[in-house]
Write a protein that binds this DNA or RNA. Structure first.
Lengths: 267, 267
DNA sequence: ACCTGAACACCGTTCAAGT
DNA sequence: ACCTGAACACCGTTCAAGT
């Protein structure tokens, strides 16, 4: 076992997953805490995820993590090269939480779901992930995201899009439409949920207060009005209900859009 | 003029735009550099945008900014309360770059464009903004975004969605579908463009290299294969061409989806 | 093989002091 | 009214040294 990738003249890497030695220090064996301090990559990654969930990306630091693990800040550097590498590990780890259909369901026609259900299911799972771990969104943008769990998700999505029967050159556009939408939606939603939680308010209370503050400013009152109409029309009593409705309608729109493209192709 | 919102017992604010005194220190008068150092909010904001463009959000710091302005780090704090406030100002500033249709075009039926063209135009503008300023994406998620320019954009988008003729309770879902998609798409695209630039490579070269590296790893070769099919099928010779095609197809999909919903409503 | 302490070059922000 | 210097409580990371 070699110290994390020979620091001296480390080559520019784009991802943890492309390390020279992929021996996954302490990650593979199943056994844990051979080490004096009980440290290994898995435990470090788990703790990282827990801290990110609890305190957010901005407050996360190697020193804070080390304290949580009861070691010096520098001990962690035996297992990961940089903070970014660690974040990449954490990112892929939570992609492992996704509840994905079996890979070989393709061969079994009985369990082969309709592409509409598949897309809706994957969208719902991805959305929940982004909301549960609000720190995932900024990281998805910044890393290559080729860890095993992220890959599994990507491939599942690709299979679902293939099942639509769209011509190949349109598949990537459709994939983008659906999952970039979910990414954007989940990002905003996750952030809002986070803000409410750390303000110790319900989502409705926070929403009402924010609306109130903005309306109180005379120079904004006018601008808010137009939005208010839209709000009222959305129906649903709680913020959550409105959001569920919006999400469902947007997904229905995409499904309808795909169907329209299919109809065009066939004619 | 009062020092930035009375630091001592500053109340928890959610946005720069909700300051007690909205006298926009140094921002309003048109004249600049009454101050000994020539500092004012506008100049600070401009320099911030320039630095964020050139070096990215991660490298931006109050000290780096101060150096660029030839003042002490602390001088800036006379004009803005916190780093976050400054970022919020920068964010709204670049929303001012958007080329939006006249607000009163609604009343003039001759210049009133089709909602399809309006949505496509707004989507294209928003996408360009996210790519031109890659740091915008993470900030859109984290701030309330109620500055005058952001507001103007939101209202323009709302008007366009209204023009579809969708029933009010479906308008927000449609709005989300289109613009959360653009947000996701522009985020990924902007990041990729940034990476290529800072690696000093063309987009195609960077793409080829990334593909090559990943393929070289035996445990990824299999996973990449499925993606490769999709790539080849997309057609277009350059990365940029593929991306344009994907974007156009995705937007076509949404427009078709909205039309399908309209047809459903009318029947 | 694994872990530590001290050190370097940074942060955002406060505070008292200058002009 | 505007700007500065010193200071506080942090960062990520390196390096030489411990066991």
């Amino acid at each position: 076992m070699v110290k994390a990738a020979d620091r001296a003249k480390r080559p520019a890497r784009t991802s943890v997953w492309l390390e020279e030695k992929a021996t996954a220090r302490g990650g593979g064996g199943g056994r844990r805490s051979d080490q004096p301090s009980g440290l290994d990559r898995d435990r470090i990654t788990e703790t990282t995820v827990r801290l990110l969930d609890a305190e957010g990306l901005a407050k996360f630091s190697m020193r804070r993590l080390a304290a949580e693990l009861n070691v010096t800040a520098m001990s962690v550097y035996w297992y990961v090269d940089t903070k970014d590498d660690l974040l990449e590990l954490a990112l892929d780890a939570v992609f492992g939480e996704l509840d994905l259909p079996e890979a070989d369901s393709e061969s079994d026609p009985d369990t082969k779901a309709d592409w509409r259900d598949q897309l809706r299911e994957l969208a719902a799972e991805y959305r929940k992930l982004l909301v549960r771990h609000a720190w995932v969104s900024p990281l998805v943008g910044t890393f290559l995201n080729i860890g095993p769990n992220s890959m599994r998700f990507s491939l599942t999505v690709q299979r679902a899009v293939k099942n639509t029967g769209l011509p190949p050159h349109e598949q990537m556009g459709a994939l983008s439409a659906v999952f970039q939408f979910v990414y954007g939606f989940g990002t905003i939603e996750g952030h809002f949920v986070q803000r409410c939680a750390s303000a110790g308010m319900t989502q409705d209370a926070y929403f009402q207060q924010a609306m109130g503050t903005v309306k109180a400013e005379p120079r904004f009152a006018e601008m808010v009005e137009s939005s208010a109409e839209l709000m009222d029309a959305r129906g649903g009593d709680t913020v959550e209900e409105m959001r569920e409705r919006d999400f469902r309608i947007a997904l229905d729109l995409m499904v309808a859009g795909i169907e329209a493209m299919l109809a065009r192709t066939r004619s």
